[in-house]
């Protein structure tokens, strides 16, 4: 029960974080040069149209009042019209965000499973050849940008070996399942179409692995470091000394305390992946929010930019709450101290 309270409190904190973020976004969008009213109506429009538009957009009011109007409509789901697509920004976001979310979720899954497994393997065989291979692999994973992996994968598995599709979310000859969640793999299963599911997974493989490489490597390194540190702890020696089988010592009593730092780092990596997916979304023609955001920036499409920044901020906040939840489950010290501070 008190744990629940901790989360309600954590959630309320997040609302203030988002409020702060929206202030920053709004102020920045208003201090950049250029008249939003002029941009909205176009360069050929006569001055009186611009003046009407200024009135309509509340641009003659003070900035705090403007922010209040903006926030009020943002809360009701109205983020304005995109200059680029001439559609409500919220509709655009609804369309592009799930694609990136799906990519980031799969990348996160690969990061977590791959990172923890490689790190564990490395720690159990510390300073042996397995460990050395993993460490070199991890260094390479960290220093190589995701788009390089994207290009190499496309070349090798897409063009040379021809194993995996290189563009889009599903093959063009298939029709998308009805949109429920916006996640292709989930929607296809909900619609009972396993073939579309398999096709969607094939499309996801290369971009999500490329996106996951940095986080996976980071996760492997952190897991290895924490685990080999914990291997020297007295409680592990004590558990071994009391006759608890080695397998249980390693996979239960060592793994749980060693995951705590990894979970925190992976949380940040997953949230960052949503924003960093941009180049991969270009390479794989992935209709996602990063690509949308960069196009909006190039076109000075302020409403769309604000919406993208806000959605990325929201993703960070949500991921952080999830991380706190998982760390709280793993580590009673954090859970209990959170209760004591009340």
């Amino acid at each position: 029960m008190r744990f629940l309270y901790f989360f309600v409190r954590r959630f309320l904190h997040s609302i203030f974080v988002l409020l702060g973020l929206s202030v920053v976004i709004y102020v920045i969008s208003r201090i950049v040069p250029g008249d939003p009213a002029r941009m909205a109506v176009g360069y050929q429009a006569p001055q009186w149209v611009v003046n009407n538009m200024r009135e309509y957009m509340h641009l003659n009011d003070t900035i705090p009042v403007q922010f209040f109007y903006w926030l009020r409509s943002a809360l009701s789901g109205d983020l304005g019209i995109s200059l680029l697509t001439r559609r409500p920004v919220i509709d655009d976001i609804r369309q592009v965000f799930p694609a990136t979310l799906e990519l980031a979720l799969y990348a996160g899954l690969i990061m977590a499973i791959g990172g923890i497994m490689l790190g564990t393997l490395s720690a159990h065989h510390k300073d042996k050849w397995v460990d050395n291979v993993v460490r070199v692999f991890a260094y390479m994973g960290i220093v190589t940008p995701a788009f390089v992996f994207g290009i190499v994968f496309t070349l090798v598995f897409g063009f040379w070996l021809n194993w995996l599709p290189t563009i889009g979310r599903i093959s063009p000859d298939l029709t998308s399942p009805p949109v429920v969640t916006g996640l292709m793999t989930v929607d296809s299963l909900l619609a009972g179409k396993p073939l579309i599911f398999i096709d969607a997974v094939k499309h996801l493989l290369m971009p999500s692995i490329a996106l996951a490489m940095a986080g996976l490597s980071q996760g492997a390194r952190i897991t290895r470091a924490t685990m080999s540190d914990n291997l020297g702890k007295d409680y592990i020696a004590a558990e071994r000394a009391l006759g608890i089988p080695e397998r249980q010592v390693l996979w239960k009593f060592l793994l749980k305390p060693s995951l705590i730092p990894t979970v925190s780092i992976l949380g940040l990596d997953i949230a960052a992946a949503i924003g960093n997916a941009f180049l991969l979304e270009l390479i794989f023609s992935w209709p996602g929010v990063s690509r949308y955001g960069v196009r909006a920036m190039l076109a000075k499409d302020l409403n769309a930019i604000s919406a993208v920044v806000l959605i990325l901020g929201l993703a960070f906040v949500v991921v952080n709450i999830c991380v706190d939840l998982v760390v709280g489950i793993l580590d009673p010290r954090i859970r209990l101290s959170a209760q004591r501070n009340e």
Partner: peptide, 24 residues
């Protein structure tokens, strides 16, 4: 496995370090 715990058992120096912090 037959020796540890049943034959020889050890009480480690610092009970704070000898107990796993994340298990009950």
């Amino acid at each position: 496995k037959q020796i540890r715990g049943k034959g020889i058992a050890m009480i480690f120096q610092d009970p704070t370090l000898a107990l796993n912090p994340v298990f009950t």
